[in-house]
Design a protein around this nucleic acid. Structure first.
Lengths: 334, 334
DNA sequence: CTGAAAGCGCTTACAG
DNA sequence: CTGAAAGCGCTTACAG
C-alpha cells in the first residue's frame, strides 16, 4: 500500500495537520517539525494522493482544454503553451477534441455538467449561447483562445488587423489585383462571415483600390479548399496577381494549383499564408505569424488568475501578429 | 450549492446507498426506487461529483497520455482515437507533452509518482528502464503506441516490415539505386539504430541488390533533415533513382530539394513517405499509411482491459500498414 | 506553532 | 432489495 498522510505523521511523531501544512508550504510550521516531516516523507517515499487533495479542497486542480479538430497543427503548440503556464502550479491538463457541430454542443454541455475541472480553455471556437449561460451559472471560469466574445475573457489575435497587414503588404509591393481566399470565422456556423474579409477590404479601400466581388472566395479550411478557390481565380479574365489566404493549409493549395497551371511564384502570382506551420516555414511561404504558444500561455495565466480570484472581470487581450516575409511574394509583373 | 447525493436521497426518501446504486447501474435496486431516485435527480439537477467518486473508488478514472513533441501531426489523430475508445467509459483524458530528453525523464517520473491516473498511454516513445521498473512497482498499467518493448503491452506497426514494403515497391518498379532517408528509432537516444534500416536492407538483399552504405542516411526528423540528406544524395556520383523516407516530413524535404535541383518527380527520382499527413495527401505523395487512430483506439481498449483486470499479461499487437500509391513513384528512367 | 476532529461526497461491505 | 455506517486521504477551522 502507498503510505498515507497518517503514516507520515506517525513516522514523524506529529499530527496529520502538521504534515498537511508542510505539504502546502504553510508558514505555520516550525523548522524542526518541517525537517522531521520531510525526512519521514523521504523515508517512506510518500506522495500525496492528488485525488484526495482535490476532494479535500473542493477543487479538481484540473484545467480542461476544448479544441476543434480543424485546429490541426495549432493543437500541439497550444498544449505546449498551456503546459508551460501550468508548470509550477500543479494543475493538470485535460483534453477534449471536437469534431462536428453536434459534438461541439455535446462537449460544451458535458464540460459544464460534470464540472470536473476548475477552469476551461476554448481553442479557436465560438462559444454558443447555451454554453456561455451555463458556464456563468455554474461559475466555472473560461478563457477563449483566438476567438473573441464579450461575455468572457479571451486572448486572441486581431484577425482583421492581421489580414489588413497581409493585404497592405501586397498593395505596398504594387499589387492591385489582390484576391482573398478566406475561411469561415466560425467553421461550425455556415452563415458566419469570412474571418479576414473586413481587414482585407479595409486595406484595399485605404489604398484606394475598389474591392471586386470575384476576388473574394470563401473556401474550405484545407489545402483542397485553397486549391479549388485558386482554380476559380485563375480562370477569371483578369486573374489576381496576389492572393492572401486565411490559413497556411489553404495557401499550400493555392501554391500547388499555381504551380500545376504553370504560374511561377512569386513571378506570376504572390501568395501570403496565415498562421505559420512547419511546412509553410519549409516552403518559404510568406505568412502571418500567429503567436499560438504565447496565446496559450497568456490565456492559461489569465485562467489561473480567474480561478483564484473569482471576481476578475472578463477581459480581452490582443496579441500582435507579425508578417514573416519569405519567398512567395514579390512585385507584380508589369 | 450543487446538490449532493444526500440531497437526492432525502428528496427521494431513500438512503444514499440506494442513490449510489442507481448511479452505478447496480441491479440491486427495485424499479420503483430507481424511478423515484431518477426523478429526484432530475428535479434537483443533480450531477455526481467526479472528484468524490474518484476518491471513493480509489480510482481516478483518468488516463494519461504522454506524447513527444516530434509526434507532430500524429498527436491529434491519436487523441481522437483515444477519445473514441473512451467514449462510453466515463474515463477522462489527461495529456502531457514531452520536449527534450530531460523533460521526458521528468515526465516519466512524475507520471509514476503522482499516480494521478489509472493507466498510461505512451506515444511513439521508448520507455526508459527506470520508467518500466517504477510502473511495474506502482502497478499502473501502461500501453505503448507504435513502440515495442517486451516488458509491456504495445500496439504498433512493424516499422521494418513497413520499410520493406516501401522498398520492395520501388524495387518492383525497377529501381536498383534505392536510398533510405532514415530517422532514429528513438529520437531521445542518439545511439539508437535507424527505424527503417533493417526492413530496407532486407528488401534489397531479397531482391538481390547489394546495399550501399552511401545510400543510407540517418537524418533529422523534419523537412529540413530530409532536405539535407537529399542534398548529399544528389551529389553522389551515382545518385539514387528512388528514395524511401522514414517520415512524410522528411519526404517533403526530399521532394523540395529535388525540385530545386531540377530533378522531376517521379521522372528522375521516385519518393516514398511514411505516415500519411494531410500535406502528403495533398501533394500526392506515395506513402506508407500508418493507422494512427486505430492504434490509439486499440491501445486504449487494451489499457482499459488492463485496468479492470490487473492480471492481463503484456501483449504486443501489430497492425498492418498499407502503401498509398500516389504520384511520386514511377519506374526509373533508362 | 500544533494536534484532535469534523468534513468533503461518494462507495461498499454489512446486517437485515 | 435497502439503509445505516465506516472508510477513502486529504484540508481546514478550532482550541490550545
Amino acid at each position: 500500500m502507498r503510505p498515507t498522510i497518517a503514516d507520515v505523521a506517525r513516522e514523524a511523531s506529529v499530527g496529520i495537520g502538521t504534515v498537511s501544512r508542510v505539504l502546502n508550504r504553510s508558514p505555520l510550521v516550525s523548522a524542526a517539525a518541517r525537517e522531521r516531516v520531510l525526512a519521514a516523507m523521504d523515508r517512506l517515499g510518500y506522495q500525496p494522493s492528488a485525488t484526495a487533495r482535490a476532494f479535500g479542497r473542493r477543487r479538481t486542480h484540473t484545467i480542461e482544454l476544448l479544441v476543434p479538430l480543424y485546429a490541426g497543427s495549432v493543437f500541439l503548440e497550444t498544449v505546449r503553451g498551456v503546459e508551460q503556464a501550468l508548470a509550477d502550479s500543479n494543475y493538470t491538463l485535460l483534453v477534449r477534441t471536437v469534431g462536428a457541430t453536434d459534438e461541439r454542443d455535446r462537449v460544451f454541455d458535458e464540460c459544464c455538467g460534470r464540472a470536473s475541472s476548475d477552469g476551461v480553455l476554448v481553442v479557436w471556437m465560438a462559444p454558443t449561447d447555451a454554453f456561455a449561460d451555463r458556464l456563468a451559472n455554474v461559475g466555472i471560469p473560461v478563457v477563449l483562445l483566438n476567438t473573441v466574445d464579450s461575455r468572457m475573457s479571451s486572448v486572441a489575435v486581431d484577425h482583421d488587423a492581421a489580414a489588413e497587414q497581409a493585404a497592405a503588404y501586397c498593395l505596398g509591393l504594387g499589387h492591385r489585383r489582390l484576391a482573398l481566399v478566406d475561411r469561415l470565422e466560425d467553421p461550425y456556423n455556415r452563415s458566419s462571415r469570412g474571418m479576414c474579409e473586413r481587414g482585407y477590404q479595409h486595406a484595399l479601400t485605404t489604398a484606394g483600390v475598389t474591392p471586386r466581388a470575384e476576388y473574394t472566395r470563401l473556401a474550405e479550411f484545407s489545402a483542397v479548399g485553397g486549391a479549388a478557390a485558386m482554380d476559380a481565380l485563375l480562370q477569371l479574365d483578369e486573374p489576381p496577381t496576389a492572393v492572401v489566404a486565411a490559413s497556411d493549409a489553404q495557401a499550400v493549395g493555392v501554391i500547388e494549383v499555381a504551380r500545376i497551371r504553370g504560374w511561377s511564384i512569386p513571378g506570376d502570382v504572390s501568395v501570403v499564408g496565415y498562421n505559420d506551420s512547419e511546412v509553410a516555414r519549409f516552403l518559404g511561404l510568406t505568412t502571418v505569424l500567429v503567436p499560438v504558444r504565447d496565446i496559450a500561455r497568456e490565456a492559461t495565466a489569465r485562467l489561473l488568475g480567474a480561478i483564484s480570484d473569482s471576481h476578475a472581470a472578463p477581459e480581452t487581450t490582443y496579441l500582435p501578429t507579425e508578417l514573416a516575409r519569405r519567398r512567395t511574394c514579390g512585385p507584380p509583373r508589369r
